[in-house]
Nucleic acid binder design. Structure first.
Length: 259
DNA sequence: ATGGTAGCGGTGCTA
């Protein structure tokens, strides 16, 4: 079971590039972020005609997450618990029925800039809500995959120029500590578990020629429960997607599970 | 020190 995560930065602007990548990468499950569409306006037929079941949690203009799956999806859950006033569409879970059943979450963690400030406070609060949701799901002892745009640079080796990020919400010590608290529940970060070399990124800013200068950061991750980590056979990043026509600022990251 | 780009939507916000 190949499970990819891809922040597409707008389904309308990325429709062609997304179709091309899906046809060549052929993930069984594609978790999308920043779809920027209400569910009624999402072009679900495009993906259904490619053999994908489409589950959505979107809103107008901002945020928006989705799970596309060639395998059956069951028990879809939208919204991250813990704050009924939070209207932002950043979390969707579904159980993928493969050789094994795998609970997959597509998540879009708040950016949090500028820090300090209310947006940063919201990021840290959201991360504590996520920690509690992950803890509850770990009680099921099922294979769990939490993938998406974490807006977290976990370590210095995950940025080309870590000094540029010292005061940024993606890299501040409080942000990385909150991320580590989630990992410390017993999760495995799939890409780093299988690939120790630095300099591998999933995001290059549209500004300042970041792509041309390879000034990237690695902020799109798959966190695996112990039962999912036992099934991990491979992980990778589709870097070449960033160099194509009308790219997103993120590229797909993927894992292969024996499931 | 500053401003640079992209998406959405039709202006300024978000990133």
């Amino acid at each position: 079971m190949k499970i990819a995560t891809f922040n597409i930065n707008g389904i309308t602007a990325r429709l062609e590039a997304l179709k091309v990548w899906l046809e060549e990468a052929r993930p069984d499950v594609a978790c999308l972020q920043e779809t920027k569409k209400i569910d009624a306006d999402f072009p679900r037929e495009v993906f259904e005609s490619m053999g994908y079941q489409v589950e959505l949690h979107g809103m107008k203009s901002f945020n928006g997450v989705a799970i596309l799956s060639k395998l059956p999806l069951e028990d879809v859950t939208r919204r991250l618990p813990g704050n009924d006033d939070d209207e932002q569409t950043r979390w969707i879970e579904a159980t993928v029925i493969g050789k094994r059943a795998v609970r997959v979450t597509s998540l879009y963690l708040p950016n949090g800039n500028p820090a300090p400030g209310p947006k940063y406070d919201n990021k840290l609060h959201w991360m504590e809500r996520m920690r509690q949701r992950v803890a509850a799901l770990l009680g099921t002892e099922e294979p769990l995959v939490f993938c998406g745009d974490y807006n977290i640079i976990p370590q210095p080796e995950d940025a080309a120029n870590p000094k540029d990020w010292l005061t940024d919400a993606l890299y501040l010590p409080e942000s990385r500590a909150a991320y580590q608290r989630i990992v410390n529940l017993g999760l495995t970060e799939a890409f780093r578990a299988r690939n120790q070399s630095p300099g591998q990124y999933t995001f290059w800013d549209f500004q300042r020629g970041a792509w041309e200068r390879n000034n990237g950061i690695r902020i799109d991750h798959h966190l695996l429960s112990p039962q999912a980590a036992d099934l991990l056979v491979d992980a990778g990043i589709d870097k070449a997607v960033r160099g194509r026509e009308k790219p997103s600022d993120h590229v797909p990251a993927w894992i292969e599970l024996d499931a």
